[in-house]
């Protein structure tokens, strides 16, 4: 009796790690399916303003993004601190916005073209003049659905 007990104590059964790969694979597949690869590197500062009366932007296939903000890091030394427009991964002028959106629209499947929405991701410290220029350019190419993309939060914080 005693000897049996002692023997058990000495050989603690090891935890089987055979199912570890399965668990990891499960996690892996989860992240593989939910991943959206970032296709652009931001070259402008992009702290979006807060708002609370917002709606979610759901389908990514019909969105065109326009980033506006002050150039970051090394770009600041070349381009200065005035806010700039970033289209795709390039800096651009307000006059380039129209052709860019048209090119994006042409690349879209035909049934999605009427639903094209431009998501304006504008830094909260950018000034309205540039935004107004972009909006005018969008009107000229008839891209009328826009979304002022924001963070969810208290809008009063924007004033600080």
């Amino acid at each position: 009796m005693m000897s049996k007990f002692k023997k058990n104590m000495r050989t603690v059964p090891e935890v089987s790690t055979a199912s570890l790969p399965d668990i990891v694979f499960m996690l892996l597949f989860f992240f593989m399916t939910v991943t959206v690869m970032k296709d652009t590197a931001l070259k402008v500062e992009n702290v979006l303003p807060n708002a609370n009366e917002i709606k979610k932007l759901e389908k990514k296939d019909r969105l065109v993004f326009i980033h506006i903000g002050r150039p970051t890091g090394s770009f600041e030394t070349v381009l200065g601190t005035e806010p700039r427009i970033q289209l795709g991964d390039k800096f651009a002028d307000a006059s380039d916005v129209g052709p860019y959106v048209l090119a994006k629209r042409a690349r879209m499947p035909e049934h999605l073209r009427p639903f094209l929405t431009v998501s304006l991701k504008v830094d909260k410290n950018a000034h309205m003049g540039l935004v107004a220029d972009v909006k005018q350019a969008l009107r000229e190419v008839h891209a009328l659905k826009i979304n002022y993309t924001t963070y969810e939060g208290d809008a009063h914080k924007n004033l600080e």
């Binding site: 009366e53 917002i54 709606k55 979610k56 993309t149």
Partner: peptide
């Protein structure tokens, strides 16, 4: 997911 204020120009 992005969210924001929808507008029509």
């Amino acid at each position: 997911t992005d969210a924001g204020l929808d507008r029509r120009l």
